[in-house]
């Protein structure tokens, strides 16, 4: 009996070992024989970021034989990644949300480098649903909100007697409280807490045709789905910008334009010089980025397929990045 147990056990172990060995042999991925060292690009959670990274990936892999890994990651965690070199570059940084990171990593530690503008400009501003202008054309400018009766249109349970001003993601720059105070508007600043929460509130307001005033921005995929109008704020002046720089609480004008830029790990220049040069050069215009983004958000293509299609259709633009 005992011998039989032992024999059958031995058989089973042998079979297991053979099978595992067979399985292992195939599972090891064949390493690509790329010319340049493989690099990792961060993809932050919005369409524009995915579009840029995928376009760069297509070009890097087809023209520069550099294998590219795309890493989906939160924008705040991107910076320690760039710092350590586990992320090689991020192609769409919104300066308004990353003043502290620029100071720490680019200016002070110099472990991250600014590798130029991406191309598109972004603009934060105050928005209302366009449909509201029909009954209240005066709300097209900030002066329309001085009238407490108008402001009260925007009142909610959270804002009480004042009108509600909704702010979205806390990571974005916000001068809204200062603007409200310095222009003496009867509004209450309420933070939605996240972009998703703000978008839900916008969708809800548009569906119900209820008033909503909020901080929002261009470019954003929602802008093509929902009609929103930017409220005109007082013109940007030198004094106003100086006040923002000094953080003295005196800001009382429109948001300045954000120039989106690219950032790379300082180690990339030595790790893969060709990729570094290419990433420094790559640029998309606002229209080009919107065109690819529309394929993703509108036509339901994957960012990967949309990038391939666009790169194939625009060889001249791509050649410009490589020259």
């Amino acid at each position: 009996m005992n011998i039989r147990y032992a024999r059958s056990t031995r058989w089973m172990v042998a079979a297991a070992l053979i099978a595992v060995a067979a399985g292992c042999g195939s599972a090891a991925k064949s390493s690509s024989s790329a010319a340049g060292a493989g690099i990792t690009l961060a993809v932050n959670p919005w369409t524009g970021s995915a579009v840029n990274a995928n376009v760069a990936k297509v070009v890097l892999e087809s023209k520069l034989s550099t294998a590219v890994t795309l890493l989906p990651i939160d924008e705040n965690a991107t910076w320690p990644g760039l710092d350590a070199g586990s992320i090689d570059a991020v192609l769409e940084v919104w300066p308004s949300g990353h003043a502290a990171d620029v100071k720490t990593y680019i200016d002070e530690k110099k472990s991250v480098v600014n590798i130029g503008l991406l191309g598109p400009d972004a603009k934060i501003g105050w928005y209302i649903p366009t449909a509201m202008l029909k009954d209240h054309p005066e709300l097209a400018t900030w002066e329309g909100f001085k009238d407490p009766k108008n402001a009260k249109l925007f009142a909610t349970a959270e804002s009480g007697d004042l009108g509600q001003f909704l702010m979205g993601d806390p990571s974005y720059v916000s001068y809204d409280e200062q603007i409200i105070k310095n222009l003496a508007l009867p509004l209450k600043f309420v933070v939605a807490g996240s972009e998703a929460a703000e978008i839900t509130a916008i969708k809800q307001a548009v569906a119900d045709n209820t008033p909503l005033l909020m901080q929002f921005w261009q470019p954003h995929w929602l802008q093509s789905k929902v009609a929103l109008t930017q409220v005109t704020l007082p013109k940007v002046t030198e004094a106003c910008l100086a006040s923002a720089a000094a953080a003295d609480g005196g800001f009382a004008c429109d948001y300045p334009v954000d120039h989106l830029f690219k950032a790379a790990s300082a180690k990339l220049a030595t790790k893969n010089a060709a990729a570094f040069a290419f990433l420094s050069k790559i640029q998309l215009t606002t229209d080009q980025q919107n065109e690819i983004a529309a394929m993703v958000d509108g036509d339901g293509m994957t960012p990967d397929a949309a990038a391939k299609k666009w790169v194939d259709a625009n060889p001249d633009v791509v050649k410009g990045w490589l020259g």
Binding site: T156, S194, K203
Partner: peptide, 11 residues
């Protein structure tokens, strides 16, 4: 989160 906000208003 999204349906909850839709039902109960942001706040």
């Amino acid at each position: 989160l999204v349906p909850v906000i839709f039902l109960f208003n942001v706040g």
